[in-house]
Amino acid sequence: MSDVLFNTSLFDEFDRLQRQMSSVFGGLPTSIRASRFSAFPQINLGSTDDSVEIVAFAPGIDPAKIEVTVDKGLLTISGERAGVESPSEGRAYAQERFAGSFRRAIELPRDADPDKVKARYVNGCLAISVGKRETSRPRTIAIQ
């Protein structure tokens, strides 16, 4: 075995390494619940024979402040979510509700028809249906 001398204790070295790593990856959440890695609003995306179905979970947003656009095969959901006022006394030590402007872009499949888009906002969910082109729908070929 070799004798290794440290000027400081091993735990001090780990603390120093942790501080350095924190400065490199600064701003990362310290817990899963505080994570901001996912985009807002969260979405579910699916497809039927006739349409592409998108559900964006956006509670607490005025539907008049949401904009849905389709351009060059990209569906964009944008808007702004108002913040919630903090208690008049004391300081907040955790904030998990997102507030501010947002923008979410979703690439549509090639068979989506940008002229057949419908959107509705119900109970905090923005449901968007994008129809498919007639040529892309499944069809049965008669054999002669």
Score class of each variant (00 low, 15 high):
4 V>K: 01
5 L>Y: 09
5 L>G: 04
6 F>H: 09
7 N>V: 04
7 N>C: 00
9 S>G: 10
14 F>V: 15
19 R>I: 00
20 Q>G: 10
21 M>L: 11
22 S>I: 04
22 S>N: 07
22 S>K: 06
23 S>A: 11
24 V>E: 14
26 G>V: 00
29 P>F: 05
30 T>S: 13
31 S>K: 11
31 S>A: 14
34 A>E: 13
37 F>L: 14
39 A>H: 08
46 G>D: 07
47 S>L: 08
48 T>H: 09
49 D>K: 13
49 D>R: 11
51 S>A: 15
53 E>R: 04
54 I>F: 06
57 F>C: 10
58 A>H: 05
58 A>I: 15
58 A>F: 05
65 K>V: 04
68 V>G: 12
69 T>S: 13
70 V>F: 01
74 L>R: 15
74 L>G: 05
82 A>P: 01
82 A>W: 01
84 V>C: 00
90 G>V: 11
90 G>R: 12
91 R>I: 12
93 Y>K: 14
98 F>H: 11
98 F>Y: 14
100 G>R: 00
103 R>M: 03
104 R>A: 00
105 A>Y: 02
105 A>W: 03
108 L>A: 00
110 R>V: 08
110 R>A: 13
114 P>D: 09
115 D>F: 00
115 D>N: 10
115 D>Y: 04
116 K>H: 15
116 K>A: 15
121 Y>C: 03
121 Y>S: 02
124 G>V: 13
124 G>P: 11
125 C>F: 02
125 C>G: 04
127 A>C: 09
128 I>T: 01
131 G>P: 03
133 R>N: 10
135 T>I: 12
136 S>N: 07
137 R>K: 14
137 R>V: 08
140 T>E: 13
140 T>Q: 14
141 I>P: 00
142 A>Q: 15
143 I>L: 12
143 I>K: 13
144 Q>C: 07
